[in-house]
């Protein structure tokens, strides 16, 4: 990776600050009507209609092994694409777009939970808190990690 600055959309999930590369974010949605898909893997929250396209909604909490959301969360979602398929990642709330220089990127601490280890593309130290970079590719590569998704 070059030591340039990169932009991330920051999201909050169960209190944890995460970042998704801004270029990968296609849409930010407020709460949507989601059709549940019976028998689907637990990480799949359902499907929704985004301007005529069917988008698969991924419950990031379940995907990352987090507890169920608090009552008052905003239920936003971020639409990303993986292998030309749109996915919407359900999150608690969306924050600002932030730029970070590559230099301040830290590698994952080895003690990080395996599930996080896998999807984290590194960690940025912010003032007062840490930001985990989510790797969309790995996040949505269900073939490779059926087990962890479950």
């Amino acid at each position: 990776m070059e030591s340039e600055t990169r932009d991330f959309v920051t999201i909050r999930l169960s209190g944890q600050l995460c970042g998704i590369p801004v270029l990968e974010v296609h849409d930010v949605l407020s709460e949507q009507v989601i059709t549940a898909v019976p028998l689907a893997p637990p990480a799949v929250a359902g499907v929704l209609n985004l301007r005529g396209r069917i988008v698969t909604a991924i419950n990031l909490r379940k995907r990352l092994g987090l507890s169920e959301p608090e009552e008052n969360s905003e239920n936003m979602s971020i639409v990303v694409e993986y292998q030309e398929e749109p996915y919407s990642l359900l999150i608690d709330s969306v924050g600002d777009v932030m730029s970070f220089s590559e230099e301040s990127l830290e590698r994952n601490p080895v003690t990080l939970d395996a599930c996080w280890q896998e999807v984290s593309g590194g960690i940025f130290r912010l003032e007062g808190e840490l930001l985990v970079i989510l790797d969309v590719e790995k996040l949505l590569n269900f073939d490779r990690n059926q087990a962890t998704a479950a």
Partner: peptide, 23 residues
Amino acid sequence: VAPILRDLQTFAGNTILGDGKVI
């Protein structure tokens, strides 16, 4: 359906109904 749901043999696909909901 998305690749992740393709293993579900119960479904042939999905569609958007007249009211805009996915089923």
